[in-house]
């Protein structure tokens, strides 16, 4: 297993953003769904070792990120795209990706080729020398994906990766995810259920800091059948049904 979370909790003041999550994930693409404020981003940030948990245990890539040495090893093998991508406007696309390749301790001699490959994979090959400030929102997102994948990570964490991408780019991106999923653990947090349906082998639904559903997309679809839940597509109906069920249990 590349990801093993046990009763993982994160509090911000009195707010429990993540409330005792248990999760295991190996190679493959794992979708993380949930409404706003469900705790998806906080969970991803903890897995990215950018945020320490308040309690619970976490093992990533067989290591405990609580200690500096193992945490550093995890980060060498990690790719992370946050929900809000910060960037240096004066950097070119290539410099931005190279910068993170170097920060991830990639052997410097491998960096140029890896950077070029990552940029090509996200379809920005012809914009490699363009300054980030000149890119559209979708292109910026793709540049963010490129920096996340440049080091061929074993654990790839993507928070809203398709925000701003047009449908053609989303299709390409899903193919990229599936490709990565063959050799790495990819966890995708998204609002777009069709992304989950197209690329993910497993999906978890979070609400109120907890995982309220964990299974395959087919199982999520089955939840929605005959439930009368809202939604324009089977996955949406499954999502709504699972969420409603979780909330009624919580209210009871």
């Amino acid at each position: 297993m590349n990801v093993e979370l046990t009763e993982l909790t994160r509090k911000f003041g009195r707010v429990r953003a993540v409330a005792g999550v248990n999760l295991e994930a190996g190679p493959g693409v794992f979708g993380l769904l949930g409404p706003n404020g469900a705790g998806k981003t906080s969970l991803l940030r903890m897995m990215a070792t950018a945020l320490p948990p308040t309690s619970g245990t976490m093992r990533l890539l067989g290591r405990d990120p609580g200690a500096y040495g193992p945490r550093r090893e995890i980060r060498r093998r990690l790719g992370y795209l946050p929900q809000t991508l910060g960037y240096y406007p004066g950097f070119t696309v290539a410099e931005f990706v190279e910068y993170f390749a170097l920060l991830k301790d990639m052997p410097p001699r491998q960096v140029p080729r890896a950077v070029a490959a990552a940029i090509e994979q996200v379809g920005l090959g012809d914009r490699a020398r363009a300054k980030l400030r000149t890119l559209s929102g979708g292109m910026l997102r793709r540049a963010g994906i490129a920096q996340a994948i440049v080091n061929e990570p074993e654990l790839l964490l993507l928070d809203e990766p398709t925000a701003g991408l047009d449908p053609e780019q989303r299709v390409a991106f899903r193919a990229l995810l599936r490709d990565f999923g063959q050799r790495a653990t990819v966890i995708v947090s998204t609002h777009l259920v069709e992304d989950v349906g197209a690329a993910c082998a497993e999906v978890a639904l979070m609400d109120g800091g907890r995982i309220v559903f964990h299974g395959t997309p087919a199982e999520l679809i089955a939840r929605g059948e005959g439930s009368g839940a809202a939604g324009d597509a089977p996955l949406e109906r499954g999502y709504s049904a699972a969420l409603a069920a979780a909330r009624s249990v919580a209210a009871a």
């Binding site: 009368g228 809202a230 324009d232 709504s240 209210a251």
Partner: peptide
Amino acid sequence: MTAAGIHSTPRGT
């Protein structure tokens, strides 16, 4: 994702 079917008031509103 749509708002339909979510009958309870979201927490924190």
